[in-house]
């Protein structure tokens, strides 16, 4: 990459993020990655993490965080039943469905009798 940082870290210093950390994050994010992809992400994440470290320059003592720009109280509504999607419509986008249910791979192992 033309920003000239191939190791994702300062030359000669520890990398900003290690391959094992990338592997851990990929697991948390449920992303299967090959070793080559792990390296690809390590370099790119390292470059961004190094860049965002510039936020450490700022004194943020006594500053409240902004999570949302609009000041609003809880938004409430009456609890009334309204028309909603039918079951068939609701599951119609699922890649796999059976007997009115979304179908997914087995989660809980059973013995031959079918008892959990």
């Amino acid at each position: 990459m033309s920003s000239g940082r191939e190791d994702g870290g300062r030359p000669g210093a520890d990398p900003v993020i290690t391959a094992d950390e990338v592997r851990h994050i990929a697991h948390l994010a449920r992303l299967e990655l090959t070793d080559r992809e792990i390296e690809w992400f390590r370099v790119r994440l390292g470059a961004i993490l190094e860049y965002v470290a510039k936020l450490n320059e700022i004194d943020i003592e006594n500053v409240e965080p902004t999570s949302h720009v609009i000041l609003m109280e809880n938004v409430l509504r009456d609890d009334v039943v309204r028309p909603s999607l039918s079951r068939d419509e609701a599951i119609g986008s699922a890649p796999s469905s059976r007997n009115g249910f979304v179908a997914a791979p087995r989660i809980i192992e059973t013995d031959d009798s079918g008892v959990v």
Binding site: A29, R30, L31, E32, L33, S93, A94, P95, S96, V102, A104, P105, R106, I107
Partner: peptide
């Protein structure tokens, strides 16, 4: 699960998630 693309080649549910997302 609910919509969109699902990968076809996986061993279990966790593998299905991470292969689909990959």
């Amino acid at each position: 699960i609910g919509y969109g693309f699902r990968a076809e080649d996986f061993d279990d549910l966790a593998g299905m998630y991470s292969r689909t997302r990959h």
